[in-house]
Structure formats: structure tokens, C-alpha cells
Design a protein around this nucleic acid. Structure first.
Length: 135
DNA sequence: GCCAACGTTGGC
DNA sequence: GCCAACGTTGGC
């Protein structure tokens, strides 16, 4: 199983909305590197759900329930979506500042490339963040 | 509100 | 194909 992190501005789409709707298409990705990550996702993979701008923290975990297919909101037909389902809320959100202070996480794609909205997470990073959150 | 880091567009 | 100008994201 692979691990990922997906970002959303809570004003546009928040964790609470994700929980309420349960399963949704993760649409609107218009960056090729982020899209490549979406294409690499497999059913059953887990993703951290990160609130950008407002919050700047990981709040929950979602699971990939459907692998990539064309983004209905993209007229060019180049970009894709995956379906994600809310799995669990972190016992305690993990803030960006905490991640920056954690040595194991220094090389995280999230920290190195702040603009990338879909990033890979290594198993070590996944475990370290779970530890920070109290899971 | 500012700015760094990118990505994209368009003139040449 | 290069590069300047511009737009966007997201942290601070």
C-alpha cells in the first residue's frame, strides 16, 4: 500500500464536508505533477487530508476507493480524479510547524514543494505523523 | 498584504 | 526553442 497527502482549502472543501459526504471525486487538480500522483494511486491506498491556508494542518485520513478516471470538470480531458472516502479523523491535528520541526519529515514532498497539492508520503513519514497525532 | 516558487502564455 | 511577463498557490 502507498501513502499520499492531498491538500484542500477548507473554504472550498473541508474535512467536515468530506465526512458528511463520505465518498467524493477529488476533482480540480490542474497540475501535471499532482495529476501524475493521482494516476499512481491504487485502490486501498491511504491519504492524509491537509487543510491549506486556513489551518495548515493534517486533519484526517481518506482512502482511495476508485482509481483514476477523467475529471468531468476538465474540458481538455487531460486531467484525472480519484474517488476518496473519509476513514478517520486524527485524534489531534498535526500542524505544518510541527512537521517542520520533526527530523524524519525534513524531506517530505509537502515541505519541499509547498505548491504541490497531491504529494507522496513515505511509510516512515506516515508512521511519524501518526505518532505526532497520537494514533 | 507580501513574496517565493512555480507554471503558463505569447512574442520573437 | 528561449525567455519575459503574468497568474496562481500557499506560507508567513
Amino acid at each position: 500500500m502507498n501513502y499520499w497527502l492531498i491538500k484542500s482549502e477548507p473554504f472550498k472543501w473541508s474535512w467536515d464536508q468530506q465526512v458528511k459526504k463520505k465518498t467524493t471525486a477529488w476533482d480540480g487538480v490542474r497540475n501535471h505533477q499532482a495529476a501524475a500522483n493521482l494516476r499512481a494511486m491504487k485502490k486501498g491506498d491511504r491519504c492524509f487530508f491537509y487543510h491549506s491556508n486556513e489551518g495548515k494542518e493534517i486533519v484526517g485520513i481518506v482512502e482511495i476507493v476508485k482509481e483514476f478516471y477523467p475529471d468531468p470538470s476538465d474540458e481538455t480531458g487531460k486531467f484525472v480524479v480519484v474517488d476518496v472516502k473519509a476513514v478517520e479523523k486524527l485524534p489531534r491535528p498535526v500542524m505544518l510547524t510541527e512537521m517542520k520541526q520533526t527530523k524524519t519529515l525534513a524531506n517530505m514532498a509537502l515541505l519541499r514543494q509547498s505548491r504541490l497539492s497531491v504529494c507522496p508520503v513515505s511509510p516512515e513519514e506516515w508512521a511519524a505523523i501518526n505518532r505526532l497525532s497520537g494514533l
